[in-house]
């Protein structure tokens, strides 16, 4: 069947991408090795964002709070409570999931632009709260997660997360797991309901689906994925700071997703990679790198209005998930 063939192609492509990222870890020069590790973590953040924005069509301007919930949840439990790495990682994810539940219950009473503004304001409240409790959070300066506590003991083995090779593989594992989860989710019945909600919420409701419950589930999964990325960021890179909770970090995943292609599985990775490398290369040639990034965004959107992968899917590869 045609559907099965395209599913096979799709899964094959994603396995190939993971394999390529793994192979890259052996050949990349050290700086790019480190940069790609960071990009994979942030692309995971973008995938979490994409689940809500791309598939359900809910534009949030507050996802920095979920990333930051994971970041602080993990970072502060290591810093103040001396938790082990796996426990702190789970703690960070838990913080994000609970926060997503609460925010979802409140914010989903709204839709469209009101949803956008409400999420932005809740994120602002979260950001200011971090500043307000500066004695524990380090406020705007942030805190360094001590190097010695960033070692993970699993079974009998120990993994030093400050070691670049270990860090790269942990980041890749996180990215691969979340990619698989997202792929399975969007191809499941749940995923189809989400897309149906995006296309026509009223009709979906009439068909007997509880759209609120489905949207709430989507917010929780999305927030949890973003928190996982945040928790990984704190443990892998050793710094928590309020700038990761600022509105800038709510806009960035939106930008990465739109650039790479909303509602495409690999769009977040493509968008994050593109933004990072354009910034990195442009800033080594001119101090006016913001100008280059700005022009690139505009030129990009003029020729790829649906993002890179979105446009490719529309024009050439219909089977792209």
């Amino acid at each position: 069947m045609k559907g099965e063939a395209s599913a096979l192609k799709a899964y094959g492509l994603h396995v190939a991408v993971i394999g390529l990222l793994f192979a890259l870890s052996f050949v990349l020069p050290p700086y790019h090795h480190g940069l790609v590790a960071r990009i994979m973590v942030l692309a995971t953040f973008a995938m979490g964002y994409n689940l809500l924005f791309g598939y359900v069509g809910l534009l949030s301007l507050g996802h920095a709070m979920f990333f930051a919930a994971g970041l602080y949840g993990a970072g502060l439990s290591v810093y103040h409570l001396g938790w082990s790495v796996p426990l702190a990682f789970a703690g960070g994810i838990g913080c994000g999931a609970v926060l997503a539940l609460v925010i979802g219950l409140l914010a989903l009473r709204t839709s469209g632009v009101a949803f956008m503004i409400v999420t932005m304001m809740f994120a602002q409240v979260f950001y200011l709260t971090i500043l307000y409790f500066a004695r524990w959070t380090g406020g705007d300066q942030g805190l360094v997660v001590p190097q010695g506590s960033r070692v993970m003991y699993l079974g009998g083995a120990s993994f030093d997360l400050t070691n670049p090779a270990v860090r790269y593989r942990v980041a890749l594992a996180l990215f691969a797991i979340v990619l698989a989860v997202v792929l399975v989710l969007v191809r499941s019945g749940f995923g189809r309901v989400l897309v149906a909600i995006r296309e026509n919420e009223e009709r979906t409701k009439m068909l007997g689906f509880d759209t609120f419950a489905n949207k709430l589930a989507a917010v929780i999964v999305s927030g949890t994925i973003c928190a996982a990325a945040g928790a990984a960021y704190a443990l892998l890179f050793g710094y928590v700071g309020s700038s990761f909770a600022s509105v800038q970090y709510s806009i960035l995943p939106l930008l990465w997703v739109l650039l790479g292609g909303a509602a495409t599985a690999l769009g977040p990775l493509v968008g994050t990679l593109a933004m990072y490398y354009v910034t990195d290369i442009a800033s080594s040639y001119t101090s006016a790198w913001l100008l280059i990034v700005g022009v690139m965004l505009i030129v990009g959107v003029l020729f790829f209005p649906k993002g890179v992968l979105g446009t490719i899917r529309q024009r050439w590869l219909r089977w792209l998930p």
């Binding site: 020069p29 050290p30 942030g142 080594s284």
Partner: peptide
């Protein structure tokens, strides 16, 4: 010279860039 954008995240990347690139 590398610009860090007065941002802690980018700052860490810039330090790595100096060290490795």
């Amino acid at each position: 010279i590398e610009d860090d954008g007065t941002d802690p995240g980018r700052g860490a990347e810039v330090v790595a860039k100096f060290a490795n690139q």
